[in-house]
């Protein structure tokens, strides 16, 4: 088998395992299997709601935003501006966390500082503003406030700790990966 085919196989391995597994469930236990595929289908429809615009914006950002601009606002010396932009971009985002990773990829590729990108991912994961109203109405104001305030610190602490713990070589590899994925 040639190298390209091997890589294809590696990329699709997880999907193949899941497909074979769930199809087997569908055969052995049709009720459960149909439930699995029903939920997956709902999820795919939900994904069509958020992912296409995210990827279009990624493409536009990739083409139009110059590397120097990104480095200036989100790079190593961007300071508080980079941090605030990270929080803003992450919390204004819509869609599940897996939408954040490709966005992180393009930001890294354009020269964003790793901690700022981790702030985007952290805020995207836990501080989405469009979701806050949902949270207040379902969980109450106090619950929402405690979580939101704690998350500001949590996101910062996690972002900077990861940057501290990673060696220069680890960081180089992350930028290398981001390049590969874009």
């Amino acid at each position: 088998m040639n190298k390209k085919k091997m890589e294809m196989l590696k990329r699709y391995r997880f999907l193949l395992v899941m497909l074979v597994g769930t199809l087997m469930i569908l055969v052995v236990n049709p009720t459960l299997g149909r439930h699995v595929y029903g939920l997956a289908w709902d999820n795919i429809l939900g994904m069509l709601g958020v992912l296409p615009p995210i990827f279009i914006l990624i493409g536009l950002l990739d083409v139009w935003v110059k590397k120097e601009t990104m480095v200036k606002y989100m790079g190593k010396d961007s300071g508080i501006v980079g941090i605030l932009l990270g929080f803003f971009l992450g919390s204004a985002a819509a869609g599940p966390l897996y939408g954040a990773f490709p966005v992180a990829g393009v930001f890294l590729n354009k020269g964003s500082r790793l901690s700022n990108v981790l702030i985007i991912v952290g805020a995207w994961a836990s501080m989405k503003i469009p979701l806050l109203l949902f949270e207040v109405s379902a969980m109450g104001f106090k619950f929402t406030l405690i979580r939101f305030v704690m998350d500001i610190f949590g996101v910062l602490i996690i972002a900077y700790s990861i940057e501290k713990i990673l060696t220069d070589e680890d960081e180089r590899q992350i930028y290398e990966l981001a390049k590969k994925m874009n």
């Binding site: 997880f14 999907l15 899941m18 597994g21 769930t22 939920l39 897996y98």
Partner: peptide, 12 residues
């Protein structure tokens, strides 16, 4: 590919 696999896993 990863994404579709994950969607099936979540469904399961």
């Amino acid at each position: 590919p990863q994404f579709l696999g994950i969607i099936l896993l979540i469904g399961l």
